[in-house]
């Protein structure tokens, strides 16, 4: 059977079921507010959001692979492109672009064209250290870990903190070789 061509992000987004972005935005806001109340420390909230994102990423990759027909990427460059062009589009309905590659091609930035998480949001003075969208970095990290890539994902620019864009830096730490889970004689 000939391999199926990967579908474009727009085509996938058009074919899946949708929910209103405001429900999504407000629900996310409710989560962040609960975390701020429970954990008190902004640092802890950042960590918890990242952890939640990681949990999502670990599961989301299955849906991503099942619906996108994307096969193995040849290198990290292609991976980053796929995340930006297909991944973000397919789940959040927003595009993203990849820029700022370093010389050896292991570190790049994903710049979001839009961000549905931050509608209606403004950080109060007490939460200036908060990475409001930290869940997204966790999602990317979790999803990549499931395809054998250990990464470090951090926010470089965040509009809620006064920057002019949302920019995620994705740094490839190492590629874990895939191992057969059982020994032959087991």
């Amino acid at each position: 059977m000939a391999p199926v061509a990967p579908r474009s992000g727009d085509a996938i987004f058009a074919s899946v079921e949708h929910v209103n972005a405001e429900l999504f935005t407000l629900t996310y806001g409710a989560i962040v507010r609960q975390l701020l109340t429970d954990l008190e420390e902004v640092e802890e909230v950042n960590k918890q959001l990242d952890q939640m994102g990681y949990n999502i990423g670990v599961r989301l990759i299955d849906e991503f692979l099942a619906k996108s027909n994307v096969s193995r990427c040849v290198d990290f460059k292609e991976t980053a492109d796929v995340i930006a062009k297909i991944g973000f589009k397919m789940f959040l309905g927003v595009g993203a672009s990849v820029t700022n590659w370093d010389a050896d091609g292991t570190c790049c930035s994903i710049v979001l064209e839009d961000n549905p998480l931050v509608d209606f949001v403004e950080l109060p003075d007490t939460c200036q250290g908060l990475y409001y969208c930290n869940i997204l970095s966790g999602v990317v990290r979790g999803a990549l870990e499931m395809v054998s890539m250990k990464t470090e994902v951090t926010w470089v620019r965040d509009m809620l903190r006064g920057d002019d864009a949302f920019e995620l830096q994705v740094k490839l730490l190492k590629q874990v070789p895939e191992e057969y889970p059982y020994k032959d004689d087991e």
Binding site: F13, V16, E17, H18, V19, N20, A21, E22, L23, F24, T27, Y28, I31, M52, N55, I56, R59, L60, E63, M90, F91, L92, G93, P116, I135
Partner: peptide
Amino acid sequence: QEVSLGAFAFLFSE
């Protein structure tokens, strides 16, 4: 504006 149902379902499950 809309997002995918999957994205919301993941978020809600978290």
